[in-house]
Design a protein around this nucleic acid. Structure first.
Lengths: 405, 405
DNA sequence: AGCATTATTTTCACTGCTCGAATAAAAATG
DNA sequence: CATTTTTATTCGAGCAGTGAAAATAATGCT
């Protein structure tokens, strides 16, 4: 029930947040547009933007910088983010690569560092070291930005502990149970936050497709893992960590196929790339999963299935069945209006779709509410980055800059 | 994204809500206690309570009415709800009975009407008629309260449509797809809201056990149906309808036992009273479920299982397995710190528990985060009523009375 | 009985916020 | 060059909340 007292300070914070939020969503706007967009009066917009400009958070765009669709009347002066107001360091840690991006407050990519990872990477270099080293390198290459970094945000895969600061389990080797977030935070004296990849996907999808901005969406990643994030009427569920799920490790078949996580019968064990491959090649379900599947091998299998080869189509059928029942079960708890399938598996959507629909059709929620809209969407990298970016900038907006002092 | 502009009005609303909320949770309080409880200054509390007293929403308790733990200093004057400030009509509609309660703004039960239901009840009398008739009767018996009824709230089972105004499916016969909420609202010119029983259970549990007030809790009802409601760190998920789930109709076994809902393999088909009975008597899984199971028959089966009879223990094992896998799957999407088992099935918890724990142990989330705390709790009637009561009064507090004008 | 002590409330002066209306500013139009 | 149109700022009013001081109402001590 932790509702807080409201006073004139919180009023200003709220309304400043509204203004920054509008700019974040719409891009540069005139003060009039801000007034109608936020619902605030012109007088308030004047006061608030004046404050924000004085504090160097936003600035008036020069007439040259705006697309001139002029007509009668005094021309509008657009305000936009001051790109030098701050910046953020964004890590994306995957099973086989790590990426660090430096972005400015306007959301523009300033610099980027990319590293291949192997299962031994974090055994040889402890995660904290690894990340600190790269962050330092980036800071040295961009000394002027280094001073204004306000946040470090890290996209990870796996299960976080309750306070969201430690990975308790992860498919990335040797990274779980190390307090790298806290250590980085101390070393650089910056707030460091961890975000589940699945959740960022959901956030990113929202930003990439405006039609999804206010809908309840489940975004399912199918590839080397299976993961899911959810948004609820445009809001990411829960404040911090919720909205991320362990969909990939939801049980599909009691005592079923062996999963990378060590459990049996997870959705992932059937629907991820290694699961599909294992089925296609009639490797026993209990065989240890391949550590990594080359992209072309997975692509090849898709091609064979599309050509009608039995073993391959069967493997994708099983995968679709696992995803379908997983979704059907998820929908007993939370039913979104849209389901997005992203990642390499989205290519194979055609091969899985009949089994997915069949499983969904067998659930009461779907029979009553109708099937949700299923959309396959390529390329999951950009949504993750974009989700991480927008989530972090929005956090800066609302936490650091909406507060006046 | 529908964040609203904040102004001095919303500040007052928020803080009035805080005051009313504190009184709702703690009971009558002194102004000093209100100040420390809400975090508002004494000056503001004085202003706000003065307003509320003038509007007849709260009143000063006479010195006699308070437990005197006196010491030095000016004695505190407690303020409490003015019971005449409003009232609410609460319907609980179950498969075999309907109950209508009239409560005053202080949460005190004023009058109650109870009716047995049969599968034909709503075929003979349309739901709107049925409810309107009883509400009228109650109004006639309590003319002075009738004038101040502010809300009608109805506890139902089944699936609601998106705007939460119509049951799209329900185990209660002939009630689905009738717009009784809207019709009642029009006929009595009052707001009428529908609430899923499972969700009210979760809300009620929160009020009944203060330890659960701020925890994330899943409340599972096991009895003639299987249902679940959730709270998230004390907040019911989502604003309106979410937080209620179709847990009972989550698929457990593809193409499995026939459920009352017409689907196959739902958790309910194994774990509800009829499911257990069907298994115990070796009736084929595909046999049509019994329409109702007498309480003593279910109790008898529990006794036989506790005595060690094979068929009976086997039936409860299957039930536990269905509940366990259901929970394990739910936890991939949402993982609560506590799980409450309530309803008649809570009696049989001992018989199901080993299978439940076994299923949970096989899930990644539980292996990593540890098993959630499972608590069996008798008597589900009071939590539902209490949940409906508190939910509705809280709604009146925050919607009708927090707004000043 | 009378006065100091203590705890609870109220009063008051002050600051900050939003708002509507009026005013100023900057361009196009005829 | 005056008029029209659109954008932005200024100003006074109204309402919140706050801290400090004052008022209130009981107990305890001499």
């Amino acid at each position: 029930m932790a509702r807080k007292v409201s006073d004139s300070d919180s009023v200003r914070r709220q309304n400043r947040g509204l203004v920054l939020g509008a700019l974040r969503v719409e891009g540069p706007l005139s003060r009039t547009a801000l007034a109608s967009g936020t619902g605030l009066s012109h007088a308030s917009i004047t006061a608030i933007t004046q404050d924000l400009v004085e504090q160097g958070i936003i600035l008036d765009l020069e007439p040259g910088e705006r697309a001139d669709a002029r007509g009668r009347g005094r021309p509008a002066t657009l305000v936009g983010f001051n790109r030098q107001a701050g910046s953020a360091a964004l890590f994306e840690i995957d099973v086989n690569r790590a990426r660090l991006s430096l972005v400015d407050y306007g959301g523009i990519l300033v610099d980027r560092l990319e590293t291949q990872l192997t299962p031994k990477s974090f055994a040889e270099t402890p995660p904290t070291h690894f990340l600190a080293e790269r962050l330092q390198q980036l800071q040295q290459r961009n000394p002027e930005h280094a001073k204004i970094i306000q946040r470090v945000a890290i996209s990870v895969q796996g299960i976080l502990n309750r306070d969201g600061q430690i990975l308790k389990w992860s498919p990335v080797a040797h990274i779980a149970n190390t307090p790298f977030a806290a250590e980085l935070a101390e070393q650089f004296a910056l707030p460091v936050s961890l975000h589940k990849r699945g959740r960022l996907l959901a956030e990113g999808a929202r930003w990439l497709d405006p039609a999804l901005a206010d809908a309840s969406v489940a975004t399912v990643f199918v590839g080397s893992t299976v993961a899911m994030g959810m948004t609820f009427r445009g809001q990411i569920l829960g404040r911090s960590d919720e909205g991320a799920t362990e969909f990939g490790h939801m049980n599909h078949q009691p005592n079923g196929a062996l999963c990378r996580c060590g459990m049996r019968g997870c959705v992932e064990a059937y629907a991820s790339d290694y699961g599909v491959l294992r089925t296609a090649y009639s490797v026993p379900e209990t065989a240890t999963p391949a550590p990594a599947v080359p992209a072309q091998e997975y692509e090849g299998l898709i091609a064979r299935a599309e050509a009608g080869e039995r073993a391959a189509t069967h493997a994708f059928n099983l995968a679709g069945r696992a995803v379908g029942f997983g979704l059907s079960r998820m929908m007993a708890v939370f039913d979104p209006s849209h389901i997005l399938i992203v990642g390499p598996g989205a290519r194979a959507f055609g091969l899985m779709q009949s089994e997915i629909y069949a499983a969904l059709a067998g659930s009461l929620v779907c029979r009553v509410n109708g099937l949700p809209q299923l959309i396959a969407y390529r390329d999951e990298r950009e949504p993750v980055f974009r989700g991480l970016l927008m989530k972090t900038l929005n956090e800066i907006d609302q936490t650091d800059f909406a507060t006046r002092a």
